[in-house]
Nucleic acid binder design. Structure first.
Length: 170
DNA sequence: CTCGTCAAATAGTACG
DNA sequence: CGTACTATTTGACGAG
């Protein structure tokens, strides 16, 4: 799972028998079998692309993620496939590289979330510590008695604009 | 065209 | 080894 982080990368070991430079013709002697014509009610085997076919498709995907009808036809000719098969291959290839991309973004976001949670935890702890350093709620000196009063018990008189006490004895 | 899905082919694994 | 299961890959197709 997730063994390749770079989508669109081409498989690193394409060697496996010669693949002669750029644009090649397939031929695997025993091969194909490509005929899907259902002679009789044949269960009909599913097509498997040869290494060279895959390679060529991969190459052209690398330079262009979509094909115009002309390119499609040419590729199909070259690969000895139907144009429809080339078309489908590209559709699948696009869909699957998009999926990989999305999975990678998902992983990235998960990591980001993780680090943010961590940071959040640290900050909360810091707030806690800072709060603990304070002796108590804020206080002010009473204008009347000159004694400290909890700020929460004071209000501003709307008329004279002087601080008065609410509701608590001085 | 994309998206979701199916199913064949194949790769990986567990076990006698 | 072989063989039985499970998981993954991938060609194909229908719906929208």
């Amino acid at each position: 799972m997730m063994r390749e982080l770079d989508i669109n990368q081409i498989p690193s070991n394409i060697n496996e028998e010669e693949i002669s430079m750029e644009e090649e013709e397939e031929e695997e002697s025993s091969n194909n079998n490509n005929n899907n014509d259902n002679i009789n009610g044949a269960p009909r085997k599913k097509l498997r692309l040869t290494k060279q076919q895959s390679f060529l498709l991969e190459e052209s995907f690398r330079q262009n993620h979509t094909l115009n009808p002309k390119q499609k036809e040419a590729l199909a000719m070259q690969l000895k496939l139907k144009a429809r098969q080339v078309e489908v291959w590209f559709q699948n290839r696009r869909a699957r590289s998009k999926l990989k991309q999305t999975e990678m973004e998902c992983e990235y976001l998960k990591r980001w979330f993780g680090s943010l949670s961590e940071q959040n935890q640290r900050l909360k702890k810091e707030v806690e510590e800072l709060r603990a350093m304070k002796v108590g709620p804020p206080t002010v000196l009473s204008p009347h008695s000159c004694h400290p009063l909890p700020a929460s018990t004071l209000t501003m008189c709307p008329h004279c604009e002087r601080v008065t006490r609410t509701n608590v004895r001085d």
